[in-house]
């Protein structure tokens, strides 16, 4: 549920930021501007972005949720009513309990509190999401910048390379790689991270191209600035907003990918993530009374709003 909010939030933030960037990007891309003294530029400061952003109630409430999720993940041991790793005190009566005051989401086949698992699961999902996204963003960002800024042979090479990665279906490849290597958390992070940079590279490249062709970059050159200076002072600040949006998207995508991998049994068996929960719920035969355990994590895939639901596709 929380992640549903998070993913919706991510999409919202992405949409919003794209909307905010759009006129600027487009205005440059088609090279047309309202010339003449009436030319009004689009404000570009973060302040203005924030002003638009803060007027949208849903975006603000979504923004408020993210710290909550992170908070939950960090302080899981203190928040969760039960310790999810212990199965010491478990009795027959504990399995597949319906939701009750003591077990909000009911219990699963092992008699564990689903709500606690859910909170602990947030940890793994977020860790995988953030680290994998970090790797993707770094690779995609650097490749996109280099391709967009230097152009020529470099660009050709990088973009063809990206195209190759883009046409490989991510999930099957991930499945193959994870299946071949040991399904550990680190491997999963690397696999997701190393396969998820393509869109970032493309987006960053096109934004770089747009920024590069703007007059102030030429002016910086005329003033005597070198490539390093131009990239750090002129290109990056304008590519950054798009990179941030991309990062949020990639995080949510990475979380979904991790869930998918775990769901089909390729998750790190020693950890408990949301995908893992789904896997267990399916694999160990959900009991009618314990439906909640299935519905909840499933639900979030539906609400994730991502066109192809990898988890169900895998199943």
């Amino acid at each position: 549920m929380l992640i549903a909010v998070a993913v919706i939030f991510a999409n919202l933030l992405a949409d919003l930021t794209y909307n905010y960037l759009d006129p600027r990007v487009n205005g440059v891309a088609n090279g047309e501007h309202n010339t003449g003294p009436n030319h009004k530029t689009n404000g570009c400061s973060f302040l203005e972005f924030w002003q638009t952003f803060s007027k949208t109630v849903s975006a603000l409430s979504a923004l408020a949720c993210l710290p909550v999720i992170i908070f939950l993940a960090i302080f899981a041991p203190w928040i969760a009513p039960y310790d999810s790793s212990s199965s010491a005190v478990f009795q027959v009566g504990d399995i597949y309990n319906p939701p009750s005051a003591s077990h909000w989401f009911g219990t699963d086949d092992a008699g564990q509190d689903v709500f606690s698992n859910f909170i602990f699961g947030a940890r793994i999902s977020l860790i995988v999401g953030f680290f994998a996204a970090f790797i993707s963003i770094i690779i995609g960002g650097v490749l996109g910048l280099v391709a967009g800024f230097f152009g020529g042979r470099w660009e050709n090479f990088i973009m063809r390379f990206t195209d190759i990665f883009l046409v490989i279906p991510d999930l099957p490849l991930m499945v193959v790689i994870v299946a071949l290597t040991k399904p550990s958390l680190l491997n999963i992070i690397f696999v997701i991270g190393l396969l998820g940079w393509t869109t970032t590279a493309r987006v960053v490249r096109s934004q770089t191209l747009a920024v590069k062709s703007r007059k102030f970059v030429l002016r910086a050159r005329a003033v005597g600035a070198g490539n390093g200076h131009i990239i750090s002072r002129h290109i990056l600040p304008l590519v950054m907003p798009i990179l941030v949006v991309q990062a949020v998207l990639v995080v949510s995508l990475a979380i979904l990918n991790e869930s998918a991998l775990s769901f089909i049994g390729l998750g790190d068996p020693t950890t408990l993530s949301w995908g893992q929960m789904l896997n267990y719920a399916f694999g160990r035969g959900p009991c009618p009374l314990g439906m909640v355990g299935v519905v909840l994590p499933r639900d979030r895939h539906c609400m994730g709003g991502v066109g192809v639901d990898p988890a169900r596709a895998g199943a």
Partner: peptide, 10 residues
């Protein structure tokens, strides 16, 4: 319209 010449469908 003002600026319409830049708004022709390309």
């Amino acid at each position: 319209f003002q600026g319409a010449m830049n708004a022709l469908n390309p």
